[in-house]
Simulated scan of single mutants.
Amino acid sequence: MDVVRKLILERLEELGLTMSEASLKIGKNHAYLQQFLKRGYPLELPEKSRLPLAELIGVPEEQLRGPSSKLPKREYVKVNPTGRESLVADPSRSLKLPQNQQPGVDVLAGAQLVGDRDLPVFGTAQGGSGALIVSNDAVDWVVRPDPLLRVKDGYGMIVTGDSMDPVHKHGSIALVNPHLPFRQGDTCIFRSHGEHGDNLAIIKELRRYTDDVWYVRQYNPPKDFTLKRSEWQVCHVTVGNFFAR
């Protein structure tokens, strides 16, 4: 993300305007600013768009003239007294998954890590029957990514195992929005409490569901199976993931 795009996003937030609303106010289609700010197209704003946008958000026109300088890279920071380093590595690293990456679950580029370092990340360990044992307390706090920027109770969870490779690889951090309604085809985290008080989770693709059963799929090895909703009471939708290394 460069300084022009960052300035526009900050001003839109301050004014309470969405990208769609602002696009329409400057005489463009509703997706115009979404494409410019998030997809980088066009590379710089043409004059016909730059002038009305500058007037709309209340900044000098020359501040929206580009292409502009990129923001400085983030560096590792210490996040607690034990010296554990943040799970967010150099955000200049961008990872592309194979073309069979499931639509809707993205590996975030560093530029999308734009919020405060206040997103809790929970650790996991391999449990029985493919389940993950999830730490009761966050093991790290990382930069809040764009998809969870204003999401209350959003969290990250370290993936252990490769059953959902390539969507969620071993060691990646799954980003979770607990308020999104789940739909067929979503990659979800199903959560349960074990017999001994363990907090358990399993990451799978939701195929369909009934009042009693989740029908789910894993990718590696390919397998469809069911989870009892009485045992796996919580279904949270993942909105992306990123790698700490």
Rank of each mutant, 00 (worst) to 15 (best):
G156R: 02
R191A: 11
R183A: 13
R65G: 01
P120N: 14
G240W: 03
A201E: 10
S69G: 11
P52D: 08
H193L: 13
E21L: 09
S23P: 08
P91I: 12
K78W: 13
R84A: 15
E75P: 06
A31F: 09
I158W: 01
N220I: 09
E13W: 05
K204G: 03
G171L: 11
P42M: 04
K6H: 14
E61G: 00
V107D: 06
L9C: 09
R93Q: 12
M1R: 10
V107A: 09
Q184D: 13
G161H: 05
Y76V: 15
M157N: 02
R74N: 04
N29T: 13
V88P: 03
P178H: 01
E205I: 14
S163L: 04
L200D: 03
K96C: 01
R74E: 03
K78P: 00
S129D: 06
V121H: 06
P181M: 14
G66N: 11
V59N: 06
V167T: 07
P222C: 05
H170M: 05
S172F: 02
D2P: 06
G185W: 09
G58T: 15
A174H: 04
A31S: 13
T124M: 09
D2I: 06
G197K: 10
L95M: 06
L149H: 07
V77N: 04
A22I: 12
R217G: 05
V239H: 02
V216I: 15
L53E: 06
R208G: 01
R207K: 13
G197P: 09
F36Q: 11
R208D: 05
D106N: 10
Q99H: 12
R217M: 13
W141M: 14
Q101F: 02
K48M: 01
N177W: 00
F182I: 14
R5F: 10
A131V: 07
P46E: 13
S129W: 00
Y32Q: 03
N29Q: 12
E231Q: 11
L113S: 00
L95S: 02
P103A: 06
A111G: 12
E10S: 14
K78E: 12
E10Q: 15
G128Y: 00
V142F: 00
C188G: 04
C235I: 04
S20Y: 01
R117F: 10
K70E: 14
L113E: 01
T18R: 08
K152S: 10
